[in-house]
Nucleic acid binder design. Structure first.
Length: 227
DNA sequence: AGCCAGGCTACCG
DNA sequence: CGGTAGCATGGC
């Protein structure tokens, strides 16, 4: 076994939970072991929309919001852009923070259109109001298939509990640490993208079980598996 | 009833 | 600068 704790955690989680197939789509849901998503601009936009809606909320709530839009025949950029603001807010209500998120979505649409189909840079994304580090990385990784690892609150909890990162480690430090650890074990961008997508999803799946309520990590089996 | 959710911005000291 | 209140609904 490679002397690489991060990669060991990935392998342990993968064998425990199996491939996750993130990002889920409103039609099609999860797609484990199928990696040619998103297929077109509409799906890229749907992922971006989902990323904004899922900030600090559960994905089941996001599905409700997306389903509301779908029912209105409005799960697309043009419809949302032309929709009365109150209708948009009402549609995304289940995901919480609907006032903020409606504004964020409209701001993102302006940005998305300005791209004219090209892939945005990370710093461009960070300049859009409502897009922070995690959302930028989620958009790049899951909408654009770029090799950017997503660090979330769960990732930090799991790695702190495993004694791998410090409590006050920054987002950037954790991201780079994980990316460098994984790069040592694999070859090629394509493989990185798939692995990053799965790893983040696996961390979330695992953390939902063992890192949602305090004290964190009760029952977590990772500490026993890593060297 | 109270805590948590696949965060981010704005403002505080 | 780092730290934190506020944002809001839904599930358990």
């Amino acid at each position: 076994m490679a002397e690489n704790k991060i990669f060991q955690i990935y392998e342990t989680l993968l064998s425990s939970y199996g491939a996750q197939g993130w990002w889920p789509f409103i039609e099609g849901g999860y797609h484990p072991n199928i990696y040619d998503y998103p297929k077109n601009e509409a799906q890229i936009f749907e992922v971006c929309l989902g990323v904004i809606l899922t900030q600090n909320t559960t994905f089941t709530s996001v599905v409700k919001s997306l389903t509301n839009l779908k029912k209105m025949n409005s799960l697309n950029l043009k419809a949302i852009k032309n929709m009365p603001l109150d209708e948009l807010k009402s549609a995304i209500k289940p995901s919480g923070y609907f006032n903020q998120k409606a504004t964020y979505i409209l701001e993102f649409i302006e940005f998305f259109e300005s791209l004219q189909g090209r892939v945005p840079s990370r710093s461009e994304l960070l300049h859009v109001k409502g897009i922070g580090h995690e959302s930028a990385d989620s958009i790049l990784l899951y909408a654009y298939n770029q090799a950017e690892f997503v660090v979330d609150a769960y990732t930090k909890r799991v790695l702190i509990h495993a004694g791998i990162v410090d409590e006050k480690a920054s987002y950037h430090e954790i991201k780079k640490f994980i990316e460098e650890a994984i790069q040592k074990e694999i070859n090629g961008i394509q493989e990185s993208v798939i692995l990053y997508q799965e790893f983040h999803a696996l961390i979330v799946a695992h953390a939902k079980l063992f890192y949602s309520k305090k004290p964190y990590g009760v029952g977590c089996f990772l500490a026993n598996k890593i060297v």
